[in-house]
Design a protein around this nucleic acid. Structure first.
Lengths: 153, 153
DNA sequence: TATTGTTATACTCTATAACTATA
DNA sequence: TATAGTTATAGAGTATAACAATA
């Protein structure tokens, strides 16, 4: 390594300019930090936050369609296909032709999917606890309130 | 559309279970909302929040290396190459062989890049204002404080 | 030996467009 | 005509591994 001080040396010295005062920037940083903590505490089966959320929504809305699920997650229906394919391949989600509208696939969490969720939920709560650990309980609630207020409920 | 109520009808009725109480979930939602507002208010030149942040960091740390920049952004050095290639192609960033260590590329914002930033920064502030509009000024500051506290400064 | 930047390659997530089966 | 799901395809963004130049 050079000992010339005219070369910038350690990364910690970088000046982030106006970034730290931007909500967008701090939100992105917090979300990345959350993702990394999730990967360490929850993601040992290769699961992502998105997959976890998808499983929870199907579990709480049995029989919903792929289109409804895609809308709830804000993604295109074509994107949903491969995701459900994989989750079905893992045996966690089951597609069923709806008898009322034979175009739609009603989605269900299988027994194996229930076991997966039963394993995940405590890990998810542990992740929440460790990720939110720097905050007091009222601060954590206030953060949730402010985030909800900003995005509109 | 079916009139059978045994089919789930409107997406608004979906039950999100434990998700709304999770910091990870609300952070992700807020970040997505922020990204969309950014795209509407700032992204008219096809720029992303990541590119904007990169330009700001180079602007505030002229002559830094690609490796330093990659570390500051938390991405791999190999990923940085194509990004700098494009930004160089747009004429916003300039690579220069460092005379002290001829392996490294010192990065600089070009005059055109400065003009780009001069156009972007006001748009970014407008985006911040509209995105944070549901919050009062003290709430916005408190949100920033809580996010910083959680991710460790 | 180690590091910087590069290339080749692959994987994930996302979208658009065209298609089919069905409504 | 319109909608649900599918397929083909493409574009970002990311990573790992191997490499040349340089330290």
């Amino acid at each position: 390594m050079s000992d010339r001080r005219s070369d910038r040396a350690d990364d910690a010295s970088l000046d982030l300019g106006l970034l730290p005062e931007l909500l967008s920037y701090q939100l992105r940083r917090a979300q990345i930090a959350g993702f990394q903590d999730f990967a360490a505490k929850v993601g040992d089966e290769g699961v992502t936050p998105g997959w976890f959320g998808l499983m929870v929504i199907v579990d709480n809305n049995e029989g919903l369609s792929q289109t409804q699920l895609a809308r709830a997650l804000g993604i295109d229906g074509s994107t949903m296909v491969a995701t459900i394919d994989r989750l079905e391949g893992y045996g966690w989600i089951r597609r069923e032709r709806s008898p009322h509208d034979r175009r739609t696939h009603a989605l269900f969490v299988t027994d194996e999917g229930q076991e997966f969720l039963a394993r995940m939920v405590p890990k998810m709560r542990a992740h929440e606890a460790s990720f939110g650990a720097p905050l007091t309980a009222p601060e954590r609630q206030e953060l949730l309130r402010l985030l909800r207020k900003m995005t509109g409920i």
